[in-house]
């Protein structure tokens, strides 16, 4: 059998997904045995023009990580889509926008102002910000467009599979690659992770889902036994897909949602608002005054940033309103 052709690409990402590929350790040898890597900017010196030169569907499987932040990312998404038989959104950023997606509470002007003008470490007397074109003595230089809104991969092109996680665990990657080699991938559009939420595989004990207060993780010493949410720590495991092996929980940290919402959920943040506000203060709720309710709810700091930590670009509202 011919070797498969794999490609890896990174858009707006931290690089963790690249490391994750290496985290499968010696199993990478099995991959290399069965597949050639034809494009991998982090490791191989392949140019965009080389990719452009590929025939359509030349690549068997392209693993695309990172969110769509700039026009370059979007162009590459279209290009790789055209050149790949199977396009996999790899990691939380490609799947949902991820951490870069939180920038959707802001916009280009605000970000440029902050980064290039306002930060105390910046020395920029001319108040210059990146431009799309610049005419240098050597000729015209161009930069990619920096978008107002961060998007997930499937919001700019057709995606075949989603492999969530920040980053996807070695086990998940291995399973996905095995499925590719064995031809046992599920139907197109599937997320290569369990359908149930993380509680399914969480080792902590559930006693009663009534929480009298909310605490930040640093404010509590988890007892290592009881459900973190029941100890007042916001844990998103209640509607975040399982499949990660509850790694954060095992390190006494709550789930932050990197595996993305369970399949029926259209808006992870809204559902978390619903669930957490429902159980917060439920004991004795009939005696609570309006002021007490407000004070209790105010214990949840930055609900948007908390509940949409990885999924803001794919939420119903997608971003903060830009007042122009």
């Amino acid at each position: 059998m011919d070797k498969l052709k794999f490609a890896f690409y990174w858009a707006a990402s931290c690089g963790g997904c690249e490391i994750a590929v290496l985290d499968i350790d010696e199993k990478i040898l099995n991959v290399v045995e069965k597949a050639d890597i034809v494009f991998w900017p982090v490791a191989l010196d392949t140019k965009y023009k080389d990719v452009e030169a590929f025939q359509d569907k030349y690549i068997d499987v392209c693993f695309f990580n990172g969110a769509i932040r700039t026009s370059e990312h979007e162009e590459m998404a279209h290009l790789l889509r055209a050149k790949s038989k199977t396009l996999v959104a790899f990691g939380a950023c490609a799947c949902f926008g991820g951490i870069p997606g939180l920038a959707n509470v802001s916009d280009r002007d605000e970000i440029f102002d902050l980064v290039y003008r306002e930060l105390p470490s910046v020395s920029n007397p001319d108040k210059t910000t990146p431009q799309l074109t610049y005419t240098a003595p050597e000729g015209e230089l161009t930069l990619p467009q920096f978008f107002d809104t961060v998007k997930a991969l499937h919001q700019v092109c057709d995606v075949d599979y989603f492999l969530p996680g920040c980053p996807p665990t070695p086990e998940m990657i291995e399973q996905a690659v095995t499925a590719i080699f064995e031809g046992t991938l599920p139907s197109k559009g599937s997320t290569l992770a369990p359908e149930k939420a993380l509680c399914e595989e969480c080792p902590l004990e559930i006693q009663e889902k009534k929480i009298p207060f909310i605490k930040r993780p640093y404010q509590v010493t988890p007892d290592g036994k009881r459900c973190l949410l029941e100890q007042g720590v916001i844990c998103m495991g209640i509607n975040t897909r399982a499949g990660c092996g509850a790694r954060c929980i095992k390190a006494n940290m709550p789930c932050r949602g990197c595996m993305g919402p369970t399949p029926e959920v259209a808006d992870q943040g809204a559902k978390l608002v619903s669930a957490i506000a429902s159980i917060l203060g439920v004991e004795g709720e009939e005696r609570m005054t309006e002021k007490e309710i407000e004070a209790l709810i105010a214990q949840i700091k930055d609900p948007l940033g908390t509940f949409y930590r990885y999924t803001l670009p794919i939420s119903l509202l997608r971003r903060k309103v830009i007042k122009k």
């Binding site: 359908e195 149930k196 509680c199 889902k209 439920v282 004991e283």
Partner: peptide, 12 residues
Amino acid sequence: ELCCGCQVCIPM
């Protein structure tokens, strides 16, 4: 197929 047993519903 979807219930993960988080038990948020019970006190509701």
